[in-house]
Amino acid sequence: MPSDTYSSSMLQTYSVRTAANTSAYFVPRIKPDMNILDIGCGPGSITLDLAALVPQGTITGIDCSITAIDSAQNLTQKRQVKNASFKVADVLNLPFEDETFDIVCAHQVLIHLPNETPRVGAVEGLKEMRRVCKPGGLVCARECDWRSAVIHPPVPEVLEAMKLVEGLTALKRTSPYGGMARSWAESAGFKAADIEASAAAVYYTSPEEARWWGETMAQRLEQGSSLDKGIKEGLISQDQRDTLPLGWRKWSEQSDALFSMTDVQIVCKK
């Protein structure tokens, strides 16, 4: 279903994503005449970078957020890209025929799909991605694993904010554990021999990076619904509405601030 769940701070965060810093694990496999589907395209920055690699082909970006699609379409006009299109759609019910695309890719999407017992959201998403992929084509996904987070110094309010995310994730019944990606792919119908897995670290270590990330995380808390939901569900107190964002800002000003997390990448041949 279409939604408007992206805050301005989230869109700003997603806008710094490029094909170079998100998709290097499958970019060498792209051919100029391929047709690509980008799942969860957000504001379109990755999608339009990939469009430049398929000058004789096309790329389609989909997202459940109307706001994100509007941003992607505006960016397309600004960059004057002719072979990219965008539409609001749901990864669990893709509006495309079987065997349509040469590559189907997703960045930080599977971890957000809810589990409905006995179905695993990430597996169902990969099944749909596999369905619309051509025989011999590739299904690619890069997903973070929240268990790998390293945060220094351990500012208490920041750790509490991370616990809030974990608590809300449990309530939404999603699986923020990219380390399960190979298992998800096998459950979605890919043969083990046709799944390649790798990993990449995302990190913010310089003072400039730490300040940007800390402020981004603070704004995402303030602009999103996590604090209200956390209070409603008893995960945090009313006082923490102010202290959790301030904690991220406090962390961002520390001279030794460091944040890192591991992303797991899979390339699956159909």
Rank of each mutant, 00 (worst) to 15 (best):
M10G: 01
T13W: 09
S23W: 00
S23N: 14
F26A: 03
I30C: 03
I36P: 01
I36D: 01
G40I: 08
P43S: 12
P43R: 03
G44W: 01
L48V: 02
I66H: 12
S71R: 14
Q77T: 14
Q80K: 12
N83V: 08
N83I: 09
S85A: 10
L92G: 06
E99H: 10
T100E: 07
F101Q: 10
D102I: 01
I103F: 02
V104K: 01
Q108C: 13
I111D: 04
P114G: 06
N115Q: 11
E116D: 12
V120H: 05
A122D: 04
L126N: 02
R131T: 06
C133L: 06
D145G: 08
A149G: 05
P156D: 09
A161E: 03
K163F: 03
E166Y: 11
T174C: 08
Y177D: 02
G179F: 03
M180A: 13
M180V: 05
E186T: 13
A200P: 00
Y203Q: 12
E209K: 11
E209N: 08
G214P: 09
A218Y: 04
L221P: 03
L227D: 06
I231V: 15
K232E: 14
K232W: 02
I236T: 02
Q238M: 10
Q240F: 03
S255G: 04
D256A: 06
L258V: 11
M261G: 10
Q265F: 03
Q265M: 14
C268Q: 03
C268K: 07
